[in-house]
Design a binder for these strands. Structure first.
Lengths: 67, 67
DNA sequence: ATGTGACTACTAGTCCGTA
DNA sequence: TTACGGACTAGTAGTCACA
């Protein structure tokens, strides 16, 4: 399983745990809503600064999104 | 400390642990030598696919490079 | 053996929609 | 509420010559 797929599964799981919609998550992370959708479908290859923003919004370590 | 700085320190530490030069590490990761230099100076904002290649070359989890 | 500026091709990331 | 498309701009990937 490649890293984009792992990220996509982790994102969806953590977001559901928080009880947020993609849109709410996107706002909290300061990222566009369509981009979150793309990420959860494994359709994008984000930079590490995006990973950090996602991780902070979810209150997890950046590394936890990739493992 | 931001994520790029953490990456840069982690890369340098793991590379030294392996006893490799930047050039040798670059070859093993399939990345250009000057790009590795940039990464270790925190001068780039890489994508997660680059992180994965670096992690594989170092035999560590991708997440370990970001934490 | 490493740091740096410069460069082009390509993609990350945004914003507008519709189903 | 989410997937997906088109179009756009900002920024990265990847390389080189040189210090």
């Amino acid at each position: 399983m490649d890293i984009r797929q792992r990220l996509s599964l982790n994102l969806r799981r953590y977001r559901h745990d928080a009880g947020w919609s993609q849109e709410e998550f996107a706002e909290r992370a300061g990222i566009h809503r369509t981009y979150v959708s793309d990420l959860e479908r494994g359709a994008r290859n984000p930079t590490i600064t995006i990973i950090e923003r996602l991780a902070k919004a979810l209150s997890v370590n950046a590394g936890a999104l990739l493992d």
